[in-house]
Write a protein that binds this DNA or RNA. Structure first.
Length: 171
DNA sequence: TGGAAGATCGGCT
DNA sequence: GCCGATCTTCCAA
């Protein structure tokens, strides 16, 4: 759930990827602590937001006990219908279907209005909240996307998505 | 100080 | 299926 002056946008996470560190070569934390990934080395329950490819933001949830730089990349969210959907759609540059509104990490950040200013935000007290909901019936695991450079780590099935959910990313 | 690559996306062929 | 947009970040020299 994301709260801002523009109103609240809420949704259900339907796709995510796990990044372990620092031994996971696909994780940003695998090359040591830098100004960009410093949040990953901090306590869990915080947002790690980074800018990629000159035009997109990706949002992660820092997890682990706080000693290991681990995080979960939020890749797709099914946005609640009604006001949430309307507000999210207003943020998008082009008119897109509800299915693809928050499909893919770049789109999730855009739909929820999350950028680098929210990097390091505490998810328990800030304008972005996570809450526990009913677990989906069927979850499938797939290899992670876009990490072919990570040798044997690229093959690990650490991308989790809700089976047959139309809101997941396509690539 | 320079250059290469990137946890992407959308449009075009 | 392929390619360009666009700029931050990191490493090497």
């Amino acid at each position: 759930m994301r709260e801002s002056a523009a109103g609240t946008v809420a949704g259900r996470i339907v796709e995510a990827e796990a990044y372990a560190g620092p031994e996971d070569l696909a994780a940003h934390s695998s090359r040591g602590r830098t100004p960009r990934n410093a949040v990953m080395f901090g306590p869990p329950g915080h947002l790690y937001v980074y800018f990629i490819y000159g035009m997109h933001y990706c949002i992660n949830v820092v997890c682990g006990p706080g000693v290991k730089p681990e995080a979960v990349l939020i890749r797709a969210v099914a946005i609640d219908e009604g006001e949430s959907l309307a507000r999210a759609r207003r943020r998008m540059p082009t008119d897109v279907s509800a299915k693809r509104l928050a499909a893919g990490p770049g789109n999730v950040a855009a739909a929820f209005g999350i950028d680098r200013s929210l990097n390091g935000t505490d998810l328990t007290s800030g304008p972005v909240h996570l809450s526990e909901g009913a677990a989906p019936d069927r979850i499938v695991a797939r290899p992670r996307v876009g990490v072919a450079y990570a040798a044997e780590w690229a093959a690990l099935p650490w991308r989790f998505l809700v089976a047959d959910d139309p809101h997941v990313s396509r690539r």
